[in-house]
Amino acid sequence: MEPATEIFLNSVKAICPGLADDDLKEFASITTLMELDKREIFLQAGKVQKAIGFIANGLVRSSYIDHDGNEITVGFYSEGDYATHYPAFIARKPSSYTIQCIEPTTMVCMTYDDIQLLYKQHLAFERYGRLVAEEILKRQQARIESFIFQSAEERYLDFINQHPTLFNRISLSHLCSFLGIERQSLTRIRQKLAHQ
């Protein structure tokens, strides 16, 4: 079995420890491996996402183009995360976002049809899908609320606390875009925190 597939199955087992080895093998049988280079696009805005991608290794960024033509980063997804615009994926609608690799990335991919078939055949997999969907929803809600209830400095501190390993893997311009602040503002925040 490919190392990436093993990483994926270990993630499944961590969420649903009761799954039998035969069930996990069946889950693995619907997956395909995808190797993507740095800057390669996994999902293009305006297209329907064919497959959801579990990131075994690497880092991707989700973004959109605003009305002024600016590229806005909405998320970073690394090892153990799913590369997806989930609401569009399950509704089979074109995505509003582009998902692009920041690093060479290995994904374990599953098509929408294969996932739905597996859900019908196994309640345990349906539970796994529900738990993953709940985690995606919690993250999206936390992001929305961060812009409502937090200052830029608080959003920055939250990002550093929640993603300590990502900070050195992403560009400052992508981070500023994600936090919704200008580069000079981030510099001021970092200088202020360094002197505390």
Rank of each mutant, 00 (worst) to 15 (best):
E2D: 15
L9S: 03
S11Q: 11
P17F: 00
L19G: 06
K25W: 01
E26W: 05
T32Q: 07
D37E: 13
R39N: 15
E40D: 08
E40I: 00
Q44I: 04
V48A: 03
Q49A: 03
I52F: 05
A56P: 10
L59E: 03
Y64N: 01
N70W: 04
E71W: 04
I72C: 09
T73P: 04
T73F: 06
V74D: 04
G75T: 04
G75M: 01
E79P: 06
G80W: 10
Y82H: 11
A83R: 12
T84A: 15
H85L: 14
P87S: 12
A88I: 12
Q100H: 08
E103K: 13
E103C: 09
T105C: 09
T106H: 04
M110K: 02
I115N: 04
Q121P: 00
F125Q: 08
E126S: 13
R130A: 05
L131D: 12
L131P: 13
I136A: 01
I136T: 02
K138S: 12
Q140N: 14
Q141F: 12
F149V: 14
F149R: 13
S151V: 06
E153F: 06
E153G: 11
E154F: 09
F159T: 14
I160E: 12
H163G: 05
P164L: 03
I170P: 01
L172K: 13
G180R: 05
G180T: 08
I181M: 13
L193V: 09
